[in-house]
Design a protein around this nucleic acid. Sequence first.
DNA 1: TGCCAGGCCCTCTTTAGGGCCTT
Length: 204
Amino acid sequence: MANADTVVILDFETTGLSPDRGDRAIEIGAVLIEDGQVKGRFQELMNPGQRISGFIENFTGINNAMLKDAPPCEEVMHRFADFIADYNLVAHNASFDKRFLDAELQRISRSYSGKFTCSMLLARRIFQSAPNHKLATLVEYTNTASEGTFHRALYDAEMTAKVWLAMLEDIQQGYNLHSIPFKLVQKITKTPAKSVHRLLSNWK
DNA sequence: TGCCAGGCCCTCTTTAGGGCCTT
């Protein structure tokens, strides 16, 4: 089974798009993938210390009443830092989740040593004929069974994991590789789409 | 008060602009 080593696939719900402009995390969801199987899960709401907008309430289904009784970000992020440990990390449009992970961990003086890679950048290269590379579209494109609500952290992390494993399987079978190391995935995401076929064809 | 992200990636490009993704 293609495994790309052991990874934590994560997804944040947040108050907005930019931690640099004061936005905070409101929910974190993640799955630990080992040998192509889900071996662990993490999901918690967290109180960002500010009211969330009506847009975010509608977008996520998370409302101010739910967050009022949630533990503060600082408390949840300590537990999440323990969960991710030193594993490599994956997210759909990872630059977004990485910004929030880094910002929230910096507030509690925690860090991580794993490397981040992006399932969206991988999908743009492996599923070049998909209609687009939104998570929901890729779930449909890969005929992934889905029963839940998008824009909740754990569900999106679970769906990202399924798309991620489908991509690894596609690469492994398409190029007859024994395994797909994380380093190869990183290399693919940094290779222009038109050159990915050559990269994989020449991979030992 | 008014403004409001940022990285990737394509192209009618590189002395730039705009769409795609994430909330």
